Computed example of a mutant assay.
Amino acid sequence: MVEADTAIGPARLILVRHGQTEWNREGRYQGRVDTDLSATGWEQAMALGERLADSGARTLVSSPLRRARDTAVCIGHTLRLDVGFDERLCELAYGDWEGLTQAEVKARWPDALRRWKRDPDLHPPEGGEPLPAAADRVRRCLDELAAAPTPVLAVTHAGVIRLAMLLAERTSLADFRRISVDNAGLCALDWPPAVTSVI
């Protein structure tokens, strides 16, 4: 959890990664490809409602991609919340890498993969979304979610959660790949991030 200290008081956001897909299990880059939950993913999605039953959530919003949407619908059914959708919660676009495993990407674009691993903030996949642009849309989305009745549940993707954590911690986007987020994992943030004052 990231603590924040602001004059108007922080809003609690609970970011939820969608349940597992077959591409998750196979280690494929999904990005904007609209994949379905696997059998395990459906079990995880249904279990999330029980895990979040005591969250006090008043707002539920989701990425419109099917794997997130179906996870959110399961949560909403248990918590009796309607689901809203926001395109800004979609996963990062991985361009030419979508649908491929890391080994397949390495075989085709070894130099590009090496640059992405070393400096993900500077070298997006070919045709993919640059991290600074993705971080900007995630920041704008979090600002709006924080104005909704809180706590807010946002069902989204690993890339979005990684960016949200880096933004909340005011950490460099270069650390993007060092953060791990499991399927059906949760991340609680107080938003907006704390502002340091110099006296």
Rank of each mutant, 00 (worst) to 15 (best):
P120M: 10
L145G: 02
D119A: 12
L142S: 00
F85K: 09
A103E: 11
T40W: 00
G185V: 03
W109Y: 09
L100H: 14
E3A: 13
Q44I: 05
D86A: 14
I14P: 00
L122R: 15
G9M: 03
L81K: 08
G99Q: 07
R118W: 02
S197K: 13
L37D: 11
V105G: 02
L189E: 09
G127E: 09
G99W: 12
R114M: 11
L186V: 01
M46S: 13
T35Y: 02
E129N: 01
D111E: 15
K106W: 02
P125S: 08
P110V: 10
R69C: 00
I75Q: 04
T156Y: 05
L122E: 12
E43C: 03
R178N: 11
P132K: 02
R67M: 03
P130M: 01
L131I: 04
R139I: 06
D121W: 04
G56Y: 13
G128V: 04
L142R: 05
E22L: 09
A148G: 07
R170D: 13
D119T: 04
R80K: 15
C141I: 05
E3R: 10
L142C: 03
R139C: 12
G95D: 05
D5G: 05
R80L: 07
L92Q: 07
H157T: 01
S197Q: 14
A39C: 05
R162L: 12
D182I: 01
R25H: 11
D111G: 05
A107E: 13
V152W: 00
R88T: 12
L65Y: 04
L113K: 07
D54P: 01
L79Q: 07
R17F: 06
R108M: 08
Y29S: 10
R178V: 08
A146D: 00
L145T: 08
A194R: 15
V83R: 09
A174F: 09
K106S: 10
E126P: 15
A147K: 13
R114F: 05
V152G: 10
A68M: 07
L15I: 08
D96I: 03
T21L: 12
T35A: 14
A47C: 04
P132W: 04
L122V: 06
R140C: 09
L37W: 02
V16N: 00
A154W: 09
R17C: 04
G76P: 15
A7Y: 06
L113P: 10
D34E: 13
R177T: 12
E50C: 01
A72S: 05
Q102N: 03
G127N: 14
H18F: 11
R69D: 00
I199S: 11
G41S: 00
D119H: 15
A53Y: 01
A39V: 13
R67C: 07
P110C: 07
R162N: 07
D86K: 04
P132F: 01
P124Y: 03
I199E: 08
T40F: 02
S180D: 13
